[in-house]
Amino acid sequence: MIEIEKLSYSYEDGRTALAALNLSVSTGEKIALVGPNGAGKTTLLLHLNGILRGEGIVRVGGEIINERNLSKIRAEVGLAFQSPDDQLFSNSVYEDVAYGLIYQGAPAGMIKDRVAAALEMVGMPGCEGRSPYHLSLGEKKRIALATVLVMQPRVLALDEPTAGLDPRGRRGIINLLAGLEQTLIIATHDLGLAKELCPRMVIMDAGRIIYDGSTMVAFQNPALLEKHGLTDYYIDS
């Protein structure tokens, strides 16, 4: 589904964000992308649908991302940002969720049905008329997810889907993600989520992939986790 070859990216001030990454994701896989702050997780996600374009090759569904197929790629790879505020900028939940479909030029009836279905999926049916501004963080995160789900992408790239949520909100998101059939790539600090949802784990640090393999095996290697800033969880559990 996704193949990344020797992907490098530097910030404008010259710092390296990604250093010659290789990663291959098959259809239907569920991958947890973990690592300390500043490891390059978000930067990597932004490459999956061509928001950032570093050096190297990113293939989605066998096609190399380029200027011309960008729009098509973005329909296949849905990206949910860490802060839902970045994604919600309309008067009503309906308008926000419908954005992608209106942009695609979908007929009005279809938009309405699919928005309703997406809201149902994230556990917030019937809230089309509410103002996104007055929602709680947990609700905003769900709506942000709905804005992506409504476009029915084949790959979902999620940045910290559970960050800042209360335990019940977190549980809700995990259950929601568990029910999805799409290919999932989740950048997260929530190792519990990784353990529960993702059989495969990719550990990043300083723009490199340090570990790529079974989540369970990674958990049996406390030294590895500790070395890359993931200890706290290890001690707690």
């Binding site: 729009s71 973005r74 849905g78 970045d86 992608g100």
Partner: peptide, 20 residues
């Protein structure tokens, strides 16, 4: 970031035949 989020949802699926 807001502009990026908008861009990543400004997409057209293959052969949709719709005016985007």
């Amino acid at each position: 970031r807001m502009t990026q989020a908008r861009a990543s949802r400004s997409a057209v699926p293959v052969n949709s035949g719709m005016r985007a």
